[in-house]
Design a protein around this nucleic acid. Structure first.
Length: 581
RNA sequence: GCCGACUUAGCUCAGCGGUAGAGCAACGCUUUUGUAAAGCGUGGGUCGUCGGUUCAAAUCCGACAGUCGGCUCCA
């Protein structure tokens, strides 16, 4: 079934939803109800709010009404007829007036006894075709997506051509819920939050902190090979810095203000690293020979997000990025970005992410949002496009997604459940170097302004942790597994032997635990399984006698080998960062 | 910030006007086990916080905080 057909089905289903709602709540005002990626929604202005519990009732009404929906009839009406029909519904009237101004023919679509203002796009016989649908949730949504407007009540639902498709969709949703990083983060003891510390401020437990450190170390390893040097900058800076960069104007309300007892100077917790890095660059005079200069920084960043948008590790108020800034000459940009794209490719393959790029450009309707001159913007946007094409990169356009200082090449990674997340970004910035009056002395002895390339491969560590937890469902690959080996002595008398093996493994930098509790071996295995430990070594009389160890993997497979072979293989796999499961 | 829902033991949840309950976890004792839960026992909660209604509030009402599903925003 192609997308258009599916959209038609869902659009018709949205109409059916509206019909059911109006039967049950005659005073509710219907507004719009389009098909979307995963289904459809319909926005209503209810007189009294409804809740999720009411969905069942609406669902039943839909199933009842659809029986009589044997056709979809298109009715052309005049503007006045349309306005009359929607007397008292300012939302529909607003749409009707707009359509009329645009010179569009106004059309109604009728099924059963339900008529809706609509431009069309329906299935022919709803009673036959709308069979496999489900109402999913209720949410608030601003009229026409603007926070200045009234908040309406949105009902989300989905519909599919076959029961199998619907079931598959619902199973995927269940699976996503099971993998929810907030749930797994608690179960696997990776991070926590405290009301006393504050919302959106994650606290990493030893295992979570280890994971975070392993990710950072991996990036540091890759970056230092490519000539990046780590710098270190404070969490705090004067307002002046951010005024100069432009961030103050754009994001002042989203920055944490810090007060000094001794000065009236306005200070902020840093929400990003670029302005600080410009000041390291500017600390001495630079020759064209010094370029490119590549700085990396894993410092904590702070953004004062609105409470309603905080969400586990997905959206926090304290986070860090694998943030890099490359200062270079114009003739070096291509090489630098090619190198960045190569590094990114390598990292993505390590995690097993499929990906495509988004070319994030300016919003043509709002040129005022962007700093710097138009000509340069045009040049840089075209340049970015050329780079993608030259690298044979699969990309799509993202108008309006640029930052205020540069277009972006954003990498969208697809995880194990088929969901897309933005990870990497590369930005060619002419604006900030100019605002900070950065210079280098060129061959000809003249001062020139360098270009600043912003780049992150993983994006924020917290967000990446969330994505990886859900991508791997908490069963991390060997190199990331907080506990790589759990030794399970069968009885207390095997504890000493277990400790001896553990000592050997730890000596080889293999993260090992021994479960010495007075529990059944079966229970210890169960606990290790739930902890998603990579390898379990069950040790008992047999192992002591044979001199071979017994290895159980998370998927329940067991094998025997000498400890030396196990250590050698494990070390190799950790070093290669291979993902065996 | 906005709309809606939720907040009871470390965790998952029941109780929904007559001042608290289960399973798991923890702890103790017994058991010493061959690839996903051995048995018995013990401790643990001013029911998110602060107010209000009531003879009586975990339960009803309000404010605040936090969490979740969305919307808006995202350097």
């Amino acid at each position: 079934m192609n997308k258009e057909n599916l959209d038609n089905l869902r659009h018709s289903c949205a109409h059916l939803l509206a019909a059911a709602v109006l039967k049950l709540y005659p005073n509710a005002k219907p507004t719009v109800g389009p098909p979307i990626e995963e289904g459809f929604y319909y926005d209503f202005d209810f007189e009294t709010p409804i809740s999720e519990n009411d969905l069942m009732k609406i669902d039943q009404k839909m199933r009842e009404l659809v029986k009589k929906w044997v056709s979809v009839e298109k009715i052309e009406v005049s503007k006045n007829e349309a306005l009359k029909k929607y007397k008292g519904n300012k939302y529909k009237q607003e749409l009707i007036n707009e359509f009329s101004e645009e010179g569009k023919q106004i059309t109604f679509y009728k099924s059963g006894d339900f008529i809706d203002l609509c431009r069309g796009g329906h299935v022919e016989n709803p009673s036959q075709e709308i069979k496999h649908f489900k109402l999913l949730s209720i949410a608030g949504a601003y009229w026409r997506g603007s926070e200045k407007n009234k908040m309406l009540t949105r009902i989300y639902g989905t519909a599919f051509k076959s029961k199998a498709d619907l079931d598959n969709f619902l199973t995927m949703k269940e699976e996503a819920k099971k993998r929810d990083h907030k749930k797994l983060g608690k179960e696997l003891d990776l991070f926590t939050f405290s009301d006393l510390v504050g919302s959106g401020l994650p606290l990493y437990t030893p295992k979570g902190a280890l994971l975070r450190r392993l990710l950072t170390e991996y990036l540091e390893e890759i970056q230092s090979k490519e000539g990046y040097s780590q710098v270190w900058t404070p969490q705090l800076a004067k307002a002046e810095l951010f005024k100069k960069s432009g961030h103050y104007d754009k994001f002042k309300d989203d920055m944490f203000i810090v007060k000094s007892h001794y000065s009236d100077e306005e200070m902020f917790l840093k929400p990003m690293n670029c302005p600080q890095h410009t000041q390291i660059y500017a600390s001495k005079s630079r020759s064209y020979r010094d370029l490119p200069i590549r700085y990396t920084d894993f410092a904590m960043l702070y953004r004062d997000e609105q409470p309603g948008q905080l969400n586990g590790l997905a959206r926090v108020r304290a986070f860090s990025q694998d943030d890099c800034h490359v200062f270079c000459r114009e003739d070096q940009v291509n090489d630098e970005i090619d190198k960045m794209l190569m590094m990114t490719k390598k990292v993505m393959s390590t995690f097993g992410f499929k990906y495509r790029y988004r070319l994030s450009t300016r919003d043509p309707k709002h040129p005022e949002k962007y700093f710097g001159d138009l000509k340069t913007w045009d040049k840089v946007e075209k340049w970015a496009e050329k780079i993608m094409k030259r690298n044979n990169i699969d990309y799509f356009d993202g108008p309006g997604e640029a930052t205020f200082y540069a277009p972006k090449m954003d990498l969208m990674a697809t995880d194990a459940l088929g969901r897309e997340w933005q990870l990497s970004t590369v930005q060619i910035d002419f604006v900030q170097p100019a605002r900070f009056e950065l210079k280098f002395i060129d061959k000809d002895g003249k001062e020139k302004t360098p270009i600043m390339i912003h780049r992150a491969i993983l994006g924020s560590s917290e967000r990446l942790m969330m994505i990886l937890i859900e991508h791997y469902s908490g069963a991390f690959p060997l190199w990331l597994a907080p506990v790589q080996v759990k030794i399970i002595p069968i009885a207390e008398k095997h504890n000493n032997f277990a400790q001896k093996i553990a000592k050997e493994l730890k000596k080889n930098d293999i993260r090992t635990d021994v479960n010495e509790k007075s529990e059944s071996m079966q229970k210890k295995i169960r606990e290790a399984q739930l902890e998603k430990v990579y390898y379990m070594l069950v040790v008992g009389d047999r192992e002591i006698d044979s001199g071979e160890i017994n290895v159980r993997t998370r998927d329940g497979k067991t094998s025997s080998m000498t400890l030396d072979v196990f250590i050698k293989d494990t070390k190799e796999n950790i070093a290669k960062r291979t993902n065996l499961s």
